[in-house]
Design a protein around this nucleic acid. Structure first.
Length: 420
RNA sequence: GGAGAGUUGGCUGAGUGGUCGAAAGCGCGUCCCUGCUAAGGACGUAAGCCUUUACGGGCUUCGAGGGUUCGAAUCCCUCACUCUCCGCCA
């Protein structure tokens, strides 16, 4: 959500932003409704002022005749007022519906483009492994090692279901624990957050209404979040923080659920795209300054890169183009990791900032040192997501005999150097 | 699942039809005093929206939404959440 005053004064900016994001949004229609809203509001408020005044008189006067005359007069006014209020209510609904659809403005540095094929490579890290044999896919590797079971996954869980077993399960725990320790060492507050969430958090973070189709819902009307960002951002919903508490940095862990509604037949096999996975997410709240947002955005992106480097996984960092940005995102980087069997880089991390887009919706504010209230800025970035990262790990570290070398930093958690 | 009690400002907490945007305390801010520290005193201190060049003016908000009334924090209804007890489960 953006400030209506800002929208009014920067109509062209909003239009340009929407165009860049390839989001169809009619700013003029919103401003039109806004004008009607303000006119009606003035009318209604004037009538209420009259009513308040008369009401006060009624309370004070001792004269029965004046009293009754005023009460009669107010009875008439009330009917008119109710009619106007009804009109206002309708306009307000329309206004609010339009307001939550206003896209945040992408940063100047965001490249033009329609979809992920237009994303811009920023840097590349690591050597792609060269194999003296034909590398196997993670599916083959893991099934041969008996560390994953897709058949029974589908039997028990349905399409895209999976079991991780033996060293596959251990490897997941190792990765989580390793990354968590690194984050805590950097001052992030560890949290295990709910996945089952109420509507508010999803509306606030911007996953609803646009992305509703990709969310699972239960019979109570609650949702299964696709990321720990939702619950973590909801944590301070409606609250006022102190300036000295900022920035708040969270390392949030949660199961994540995605219906993958729009992804038809993509990645139907293996661990790349599943309905249920786990993620450690960096979530940051900071003071309302663009510079601070940018600084922290670079920082959490670097953190993610650092984990990848220490795991020895070749990746590239891409800057997402306008068309690949969500409604609220100002700028986003993706880390794409080398997948030997596909001979391509696949997205494993995503890092973005929102300015006050989310905090306005969630009403998360802070008091600055002068006592003034501001909406915080928010950011988030993947720290590590399993099982997707396992795909990269096992494929890049595979040996000719089908065994998998355990990356140096994970050995102490796995208690072994090799999965065989 | 059953019974009961709650939801008030940054926080704690009074307030059962007009004098309540709301006592008191904490916190915070400015100033004073105390030559440091501890402590003390005075005053101020909710947010959002509309309007205004400005000064200011107006409206809304006491969990949410409806209702009664000229008038609702206060009465009625619905819902959400919190707490306590019982049950159930672990």
């Amino acid at each position: 959500m953006l400030d209506i005053k800002f929208i009014r004064e920067n109509k062209e900016l909003i239009k340009g932003g929407a165009r860049k994001k390839h989001i169809d949004f009619n700013v003029d229609a919103l401003l039109d409704v806004d004008e009607k809203r303000r006119a009606l509001l003035a009318e209604v408020e004037g009538m209420r002022a009259k009513q308040n005044e008369a009401t006060e008189q009624i309370g004070k006067t001792a004269d029965q005749a004046t009293r009754e005359a005023l009460i009669a007069e107010m009875g008439v006014l009330k009917k008119e007022l109710q009619k106007k209020e009804e009109e206002l209510k309708k306009i307000m609904q329309k206004w609010q519906q339009l307001m939550i659809g206003v896209p945040n403005i992408p940063d100047m540095s965001v490249p033009e483009g329609k979809d992920d094929s237009d994303n811009k490579e920023i840097r590349m890290w690591g050597e792609k492994p060269s194999f003296s044999f034909t590398p196997k896919s993670h599916i083959e590797l893991m099934q041969d090692l008996d560390i994953v079971d897709f058949e029974r996954g589908a039997k028990v869980s349905g399409f895209r279901g999976y079991f991780l077993k033996n060293d596959g399960a251990l490897l997941s725990f190792a990765v989580w624990q390793y990354v968590l320790e690194r984050l805590v060492g950097k001052g992030f507050q560890p949290m295990i957050v709910p996945s089952l969430v109420r509507k508010e958090g999803l509306l606030g973070t911007g996953y609803i209404p646009q992305g509703e189709d990709d969310l699972y819902k239960n019979q109570d009307g609650d949702y299964f979040a696709g990321t720990a960002e939702v619950a973590t951002m909801g944590y301070y919903m409606g609250e006022v923080l102190g300036a000295s508490e900022l920035p708040k940095k969270f390392a949030s862990f949660s199961p994540c659920f995605r219906r993958e509604a729009g992804s038809h037949g993509k990645d139907t096999k293996g661990l790349i795209r599943v309905h249920e996975f786990f993620k450690l997410e960096q979530v940051v709240l900071c003071e309302a300054s663009h510079e601070e947002s940018v600084r922290l955005h670079e920082e959490i992106t670097k953190n993610a890169e650092e984990f990848m480097q220490s795991l020895g996984l070749p990746y590239r960092l891409v800057l997402n183009c306008g068309g690949d940005l969500g409604l609220g995102q100002v700028k986003k980087y993706d880390i794409e990791t080398w997948i030997p069997s596909e001979e391509t880089y696949r997205e494993t991390h995503s890092s973005s900032y929102f300015h006050d887009f989310q905090s306005r919706r969630l009403n998360i504010r802070y008091r600055d040192n002068g006592g003034k209230l501001h909406f915080v800025h928010s950011l988030n970035s993947t720290a590590i997501a399993t099982p997707r990262i396992l795909v990269a790990l096992v494929e890049n570290y595979q040996k000719e005999d089908g065994s998998i070398e355990v990356p140096e930093v994970l050995r102490k958690y796995m208690g072994k150097e090799k999965i065989s």
